[in-house]
Amino acid sequence: MLGKGIIKGLAETARNFFGSFVSERRLTTVPYPDARQPLAENTRQFPFLVYDGDDWEQGLRCVACQICEKECPPQCIYIVKSKDKKPDYKGQMQFYPAVFDIDLAVCMSCQICVEVCPFESIKMDTEFELSTADRFGGLLFHKKQLAKPNAHYHRIHPTDAAASDAVLAAEKAKQEAKARAAAEAKAKAAAPAPVAPPPSAS
């Protein structure tokens, strides 16, 4: 009969109306600033720069290779390479970014910078409460604001961070093995002309 669907619909909304008062589980939203829903593990908002150790300037993994700057589709990354070098986690001397800016107002959270980075140094953050009253400079983040410790990365994305650490550890182990092999070879054949090992890029 005509009107049956309307009655059914009204019953459904009435059930929701009263049910939402009775059972908290029905509610799909939370009163946000007071209560928060847990973020999904693969949440991503905007990039940040990972550093190891305690000193953010010394421990920064970025070597200012500028790949992410070139790959960034909306071109929101701006990097100035340093003149001098500092040792990286493997003890190799590398350049570091003198300036590293990301305009978060322009960033589209595509994660391409993370995918192209060969140094595991730029990762996606989960921070989303970034509103600011300054329209022009407020969302232009500088190196200091972008740098966050590896512990932070472990906290927000444990699985990815472990994988990332494993890659770095493997690199380091390879480097050490190579150095050891080179040292052994050097020791074994001290007489022949020493062959300088090619500097490993990664």
């Binding site: 929701n16 049910g19 939402s20 799909t28 939203t29 009163p31």
Partner: peptide, 10 residues
Amino acid sequence: KGLGRMQNRH
């Protein structure tokens, strides 16, 4: 508020 409750929101 009522509409919210019907959609299971506060």
